[in-house]
């Protein structure tokens, strides 16, 4: 189940605080991890940010091509957005602490997202 993958991803990565699986075509958050306790507005903002960073359809806000992975970091934290390999509208939105091990997290998240997206 999607939520099990999200919970496992959060539990396996120190600094991972909230995860949401979204559909870029409808620009909606579909599922969050079970510990997520964010109001709808926060989730909507997260989804909007995913659209801006990854691009929806062929629309690109920054760059020449739609991105496959985006990272936004400031002093308060890191947000990571990943697009599934085979279904470009399936994205994972991740809210994390500043000290996140980005390399390990992105590798783990990418693998789990592709599993979720393929229904494996």
């Amino acid at each position: 189940m999607v939520v099990d993958e999200l919970d496992a991803l959060r539990d396996a990565n120190q600094g991972c605080e909230m995860l949401a699986f979204a559909d870029l075509s409808t620009q909606m958050i579909l599922v969050t991890d079970t510990a997520a306790n964010a109001p709808r507005e926060t989730l909507d903002r997260l989804c909007n940010e995913a659209v801006m960073m990854l691009g929806a359809g062929r629309k690109v806000v920054l760059g020449e091509e739609p991105s496959t992975t985006a990272l936004v970091a400031n002093s308060k934290g890191v947000r990571v957005f990943l697009r599934a390999a085979d279904e470009p509208n399936d994205v994972l939105c991740c809210v994390c602490a500043p000290e996140l091990d980005v390399e390990a997290f992105v590798a783990d998240a990418r693998e789990r997202l592709n599993r979720i997206s393929s229904g494996a």
Binding site: R45, M52, S67, T69, A70, L71, V72, N74
Partner: peptide, 20 residues
Amino acid sequence: FRGLQTLGGGAQLICLEGAL
């Protein structure tokens, strides 16, 4: 892009894989 951002001020890093 910077006009659209709602992330507030301060230092930021934005990385976009496959963007070029």
